[in-house]
Amino acid sequence: MSPLRSLHNALGATLAYLWSGWGAVASILLFCALWELGGRVYGDLVLPGPVATLQQLSGMFDSGQALPELIISARRALYGLGLALGIGTLLGLLAGRSMTAAMMSRPLVTLLLGMPPIAWLVLAMLWFGMGDATPVFTVFIACFPIAFAGAMQGGRTLDNKLKDVALAYRLPWRMLLTDLYLPHITSYLFPAWITALGTSWKVVVMAELLTTVDGVGAALAVSRAQLDTASSLGWIVAVLGLLLAFEYLLLEPIKRRVERWRTEPGP
């Protein structure tokens, strides 16, 4: 396939992917109608409608209040997430290689996954105080078991039949890695990573709400103290919008690209 043609194909696939987002847009807009209706029923003080909220949010952006806080929160979430994905994936893969390690780590993963992040937060406050480290650590500890479990699953479920094929055809170790293990494991890693991303955002806001003086969580705490529902909703919309954009504009396209072999890109 010539490079021009593959570029053309990739462009077409990207367009088709973006276009398929209209269905999601439709359902979000219907939700906005419901939200507006709720706002009508309960009044602006309790539940400002989407129009009021978006106006408030754009006001916050215009005044230069929103962006710095978002960047601070994003930085903390990404640090924690990056650490969790790196370490969790590595350890998970190692655990997946050995039945014994998998047996040992399964209850630990269940334990870690079951532990409410708020409990970690309390410990982190005791250990790290009120600085950056507390939210970063909380995010790390909340995301780590997700990445670990995904990687371990990927390692454990490798199809022995395919491994036989690889051995019968005398694949060198480098090819074993690139042509067998990695493609297989990525299909387990990606969903886990996406889940971890969602968790990291939620946890960082929660951690900031209770421990720091800056970031979206802290801003939420301020707006709550002032009974400013519109600002609170504005912050929430901003966080959700960023999450959606990150997932659907970055991770999901990569996932589709990597997993073309699973199903056809959705028509």
Binding site: L162, V165, D179, P183
Partner: peptide
């Protein structure tokens, strides 16, 4: 040179 054809096709699904 030895080649194997298995009972099921056993193709790499990602290739």
């Amino acid at each position: 040179g030895l080649a194997c054809v298995f009972q099921e096709p056993r193709l790499m699904p990602w290739k």
